[in-house]
Design a binder for these strands. Structure first.
Lengths: 338, 338
DNA sequence: GAATCGCGTGACAACGATGTCAATATCTCG
DNA sequence: CGAGATATTGACATCGTTGTCACGCGATTC
């Protein structure tokens, strides 16, 4: 079985050329289908390549052609979160149309790891770098930004650095959720939010509060729970909220994880409060959960598009694209106050 | 803003060396922290590198060091499917421990695209290639397998080629689902399955039928629906099944997509039939859906481990790891027959 | 005091491809 | 038929790094 040593070298172009009885350069031309190669020569070279199982060495090619690869890097949170994977999928499809490949790495929400992954990508000479940042200080990237490696920030704006970004209309989405509930007569509306230091969360919290204030409503103030970071914590927070007297009649959760937690927390409650969650999710329709939806795949696609424009030489000031949101009413957000 | 031309070249090691007043080789040694560099020289070189914003050119290094990158490729179906993304996440975490990066590409379930993506990865000289294959003929990979690029197949076995694989105990899982339902008195059990030509589906179908036969039960035969490939189709199939007379009292769906469809199809039915789905999913607990679960992250992790062993020089016959399944009872699978 | 050793350093080749330029051979046109 | 254009090919340098080898020098050894 292991007759072949694992370290057999792959055939090189030189060997193909020798076998075909032509020079290195001619072999190169033939395989790249450049003009001005005699048909017979071309065929001879390609036959030799097939015979040897030759495959172009992309690394060598890239070095010669300008030391920049056809790779685009994505550093994101956790691919296992459907939000990130939907975004990644959108990116990948868009890039593929331009012959670019996507390298991904998870930063596990760790700023130090994020930085070292960005480093690793830059060493590989990626053509562009897409980041869903965890850390909040991106100044260390500013040197890079000026050196020809375009950055695009997704979901969270760059901090201390001018770069392209694709964001979600967080404040607007949160506002519309609050208004949706207010319009149905809710006054005691609870807010369950993730870490305030993360910009999208801040936007959603602000939007919510803004809508409440605009409605002259302050009954929500005792029902705010922020910095709720995981599903279990959200489940507990919701249980505690519903144990209050008077209990809130509606709940707004600011991301998919928290919505999951809320659904678990409300699972055995008979008279469920109204619920609206930010981020759509897979079985929301079956569960009848009203959400603030946005197109995650589009988010990725737009980011990839911005990156591609920069790669293609576009210069100019940093741009920001905002993905709009819309409420999808499925029942849970339309329950009247008790 | 665009004062700098986008095509500014990054500084090279030669430039760093010049600035530090040492030879190219000494600069290389200093930055790689090789022994036998005078401390003062080392610092001078590193200062120069910082000043210029130098970053190692990984492409050139890889070319010199042996034309093989620190990249591992994954060609999978659609990253947007949580199954694939959970697997990818498991792979990525394991690889990172060994300093390897993951490149991913979706094949969109298209065999031709899969092949060209595999090609692209091989040109980039990935150290190993992980494939969740769509096509059924993998013989075209056999040349590669002998050339030192290890392959690992995930979820679906290699065809026409001996290679490492990590599979799920499909037949066993399906059998236990059938037995679970049979034990609760069901006889008219429907089977909703995806494309039969895909090996995992075949395994699940076979396991199901085998358990039914073993129980001397043939009441299921009118209730088989295979080659149901998407959510909408599954939803319709389930509706049609429930309209039959007599209707099945239980349904077994053979993957997460079909389970989603079934849940949608049963949404407005009052007297819901029992349901067991293959593959666990995010809100199954909230929905009370009984599933045949398996550890998707472990699947990825094991595959990455096998790949890493080959990269590290392990030779020997192809190995197959089988991930076990277990039933998680959440209510839907425990509903008695009507 | 000569031989040996180890340290710090640099010159040069090499990895595998492509770009430049020059050298033929062949063709076209007046 | 000669001049100029065109097609086909190859020699050589090059991309940015690392491996090999050799050199000079001060310290150690017997």
């Amino acid at each position: 079985m292991s007759a072949d040593d694992a370290s057999v070298r792959r055939p090189t172009l030189t060997q193909v050329a020798q076998l075909a009885g032509v020079s290195l350069k001619t072999a190169s031309r033939a395989l790249n289908r450049e003009p001005n190669v005699a048909p017979s020569t071309g065929r001879r070279v390609r036959d030799a390549a097939d015979l040897l199982g030759y495959r172009l060495n992309g690394i060598a090619r890239e070095l010669r052609r300008g030391a920049t690869s056809a790779l685009v890097g994505l550093v994101s949170g956790d691919l296992a979160n459907p939000f990130y994977s939907a975004v990644a999928s959108g990116i990948e499809r868009e890039l593929r149309q331009h012959g670019l490949l996507l390298i991904t790495a998870n930063n596990d929400e760790d700023a130090a790891l994020e930085r070292s992954l960005v480093d690793a990508f830059l060493e590989r000479r990626v053509r562009a770098l897409l980041v869903i940042p965890s850390g909040s200080d991106h100044e260390y990237l500013s040197i890079e930004g000026n050196r020809g490696v375009p950055f695009v920030f997704l979901d969270r704006p760059p901090d201390g650095l001018a770069a392209d970004a694709v964001l979600i209309d967080n404040a607007g989405g949160a506002r519309s959720a609050a208004e949706h509930l207010l319009a149905r007569g809710h006054r005691r509306i609870a807010l369950v939010a993730d870490l305030r230091r993360m910009a999208p969360q801040k936007g959603r919290i602000d939007g919510f509060i803004q809508a409440m204030r605009a409605a002259g409503n302050d009954a929500w103030e005792p029902y705010v729970r922020t910095d709720v970071h995981d599903v279990r914590h959200a489940e507990r927070a919701v249980r505690e909220l519903l144990d209050l007297d008077p209990a809130p009649t509606a709940i707004f959760t600011t991301n998919n994880r928290l919505t999951t937690g809320a659904l678990r927390g409300m699972r055995d409650i008979e008279d469920k409060p109204a619920l609206i969650g930010f981020d759509d999710f897979d079985l929301a329709d079956v569960l009848g959960t009203t959400v603030v939806a946005h197109d995650m795949t589009a988010l990725g696609r737009e980011a990839a598009r911005l990156a591609y424009e920069r790669i293609s030489g576009h210069t100019g000031p940093a741009r920001t694209i905002v993905i709009s949101t819309s409420i999808i009413a499925r029942g849970s957000g339309e329950r009247p106050p008790k």
